[in-house]
Simulated scan of single mutants.
Amino acid sequence: MTGEQSETWRIAGAVAWTASGNDIVALDLESPTAHPMTLQETAAYVWEELAESGPISTDALVKNIAEAYDATQDVVRNDVLELLERLHEQHLIIAG
């Protein structure tokens, strides 16, 4: 991950996911050693944004989350970047 603010993200093609209550459970189907990842609260909201609007830029995600949670973009930016990095490392999302 480059960490560029204008990078765009989308859910990887080989990912299965489902909503379970307010949570999202996602799994990389291409990795035989992958474990399901459960996303809760804000992380689930980010996933829903990716699913509905992807590809979507980091800046747009930060803006949407800040608005949804009545926070400033500066407050949510680092958390969003960390989440995107984790999702990318787990091969759940890809850049582009």
Rank of each mutant, 00 (worst) to 15 (best):
W9C: 01
A60N: 15
S53C: 11
E89K: 15
E30D: 14
S20R: 15
I56L: 12
T72E: 13
D70C: 03
A44S: 15
T8W: 03
V80E: 08
A12K: 05
R86K: 12
P32Y: 01
T18A: 06
E41W: 01
R77C: 04
L81P: 06
T58A: 15
E41P: 00
L84M: 01
R10G: 12
T18P: 03
L50G: 10
G3V: 03
A34P: 13
S57N: 04
Q73F: 00
D79T: 09
S6H: 12
W9Q: 02
I93L: 08
Q90W: 08
R10H: 14
T8R: 14
E52R: 15
E30K: 09
Q40E: 10
T33F: 11
I56M: 10
S53Y: 14
H35D: 06
A71Y: 13
A51C: 10
I56Y: 07
S31G: 08
T18G: 04
L39D: 01
W9T: 03
N78E: 10
R77W: 04
A66G: 01
T8A: 10
S31H: 07
E82N: 06
L39Y: 00
A19Y: 07
D23T: 06
G3I: 04
T58D: 12
V76P: 11
M1C: 04
D59C: 03
A68L: 07
A16K: 08
T8N: 12
R77D: 09
T42E: 09
T72K: 10
I94E: 10
S6F: 11
W47P: 09
V62N: 08
A12D: 11
D70K: 08
R86D: 10
V15I: 04
E82H: 02
Y69R: 14
D70S: 11
I56H: 06
P55H: 01
P55W: 01
V62M: 07
A95Y: 00
L92Y: 11
D70E: 13
Q90H: 13
H91Q: 15
I65T: 14
A68M: 07
R10F: 08
I93P: 02
H91M: 12
E85V: 02
E85D: 05
D59T: 11
A19C: 11
T2E: 02
T2S: 03
I93H: 04
R86M: 10
Y45W: 14
A16S: 13
A26K: 05
A34V: 04
D79Q: 06
D28Q: 09
D74T: 06
E7S: 14
I94Q: 05
A34C: 09
H35T: 09
